[in-house]
Write a protein that binds this DNA or RNA. Sequence first.
DNA 1: GCCGATGATACCTGCAGGGTATTGAGAAGG
DNA 2: CCTTCTCAATACCCTGCAGGTATCATCGGC
Lengths: 298, 298
Amino acid sequence: MDLRHLRYFVAVAEEENIGRAAARLHISQPPLTRQIQQLEEELGVTLFTRTPRGMELTQAGELFLEEARNIRALVEQATERAQRAGQGKLGRLDVGIFGSAILDAIPKLLLAFRNRYPDVKVVLHTMTKAEQIEALRQRRISVGFNRMLAPLADLEIRQVTTETLLLAVPARHPLAAQPVIRFAELQDHPMVLFPTGARPSFIDKVIGLCADSGFQPQISQEVGDAVTGVALVAGGFGVCLVPDSATTLQFPGVIYRQLADTPPNFCVDLSCIYRKDDQSPILAAFLNTVDGYREDTA
Amino acid sequence: MDLRHLRYFVAVAEEENIGRAAARLHISQPPLTRQIQQLEEELGVTLFTRTPRGMELTQAGELFLEEARNIRALVEQATERAQRAGQGKLGRLDVGIFGSAILDAIPKLLLAFRNRYPDVKVVLHTMTKAEQIEALRQRRISVGFNRMLAPLADLEIRQVTTETLLLAVPARHPLAAQPVIRFAELQDHPMVLFPTGARPSFIDKVIGLCADSGFQPQISQEVGDAVTGVALVAGGFGVCLVPDSATTLQFPGVIYRQLADTPPNFCVDLSCIYRKDDQSPILAAFLNTVDGYREDTA
DNA sequence: GCCGATGATACCTGCAGGGTATTGAGAAGG
DNA sequence: CCTTCTCAATACCCTGCAGGTATCATCGGC
């Protein structure tokens, strides 16, 4: 049996006349007769009673007609869905994000993507940079978000956005009273640094900036993420450099201040990372959205 | 697209290797490669990523795999159901029965049929003899049950059973007191006759029997069916000849008595009637059951 | 750097699906 | 009652495509 048999069968059942059905199918009558005979023979069932006025469905034929229509509808649906999936409009995208720094760009980005591709289910996985890389290689995620990503042979990195840095200061801290804070002054105050874990990370960025300005920072505490860092600032552990999107973290007793006389490159990137050999149309659609986002915010 | 494409696609998706899939399908590798390419081209979707280790489904491919399996299962189910329908094991049988005389044979027969063909839905329609014939011709029913059916050009009649007649007598009736009632005595007593409606019917049978015995019955009342007739007997309207299955109608004040010296053919048939040109396997199965029933009760 | 595995390509063959011409059977109509 | 019309079925031919064999291209692993 064949989808052609079903198509022909449905046509004959609907027309109740082989000649008209053949015309509708743009074939001549004899091959259609033969196809119907073949179908009946293969099923071992008489689907039509032949009358001098045409073809009439038997009870078995009526039942088979329902099923045939179902099958044809399902085939149509299958092709349609496969095509949408092939265009990245349907399916699932697993995204790796890092603990807390998803404060501004990532939600906006995901929202924009969801609007454009409503039938793609986006699944978020919170994981560290190292976990993201492993998960990408194992294909548990298709794209990861992180900062300070170093080039890798099999993974492609695409920058999403760049943020300048601000200083989180306890409200009673001496620096909080100053109208202007110069970057070099940070050498006199203990700092909270984050994140712990795989290097290079934002920590190295901060230490590098200090080195560029000719000093080593006093490290009061290293913590896992920005939220914890700002919490320690609130607790008086010291000051902390954070990306400006962290200002959405409003802690009582913490104020954010801009810095003067900053070294060059006083900013940190947010990038996404994905497998170079990933041809998935959903990833392509997502990266497309990322590019659109970057242009909008540039 | 073709069911073959789906079969091949599922095989390749399951084996993740064209060579093995080809072996499983008992074809060689190149045509299989080509069929998969055709399928992908027709859908406009890449279903597999080709790796040096074999074929790996894309996300679109995985989705299509589900659908393909569904479709194949549905096709299998459709053939199976069509075949069962073709064998009369699945479907629907519309049966015409008459008002009340379905007292013994018909329920037993329907029960036997239902046991043998549990997936055939039997729909009962109560209708008169004339309505049955019209409904048969219009194909609203496939088989009817009645008595005293006269031959018709397009309808076949098959006798189901034969019943002798009994006399329903009011308990206080003079005849009730006699140890033996002879048929000829009925000429002295008013009788209730049934059914009204299309002739010839059971009424003609009774009148004919009386004529054979040399008298005309005194008609006290004509009624539509046996139940009403026996009710009138209970009300003292007279006696009434009924088929012996009517003894299941137990009315207070009515007793059933056998008759002596009855004329020949002192019995009435129950037959079923169906279209001569009806090739329906369900009807065939039903008639088969009817034959079995007749043999069992013979 | 060679070998083995895997998928892709090239080319051939046989069959099955589609075409034309015709027959057969029943219904309609003069 | 014979003719004619309408359908489906049959006979026969032809072309396109599924499937076969041989071979190539590519990538990992030893």
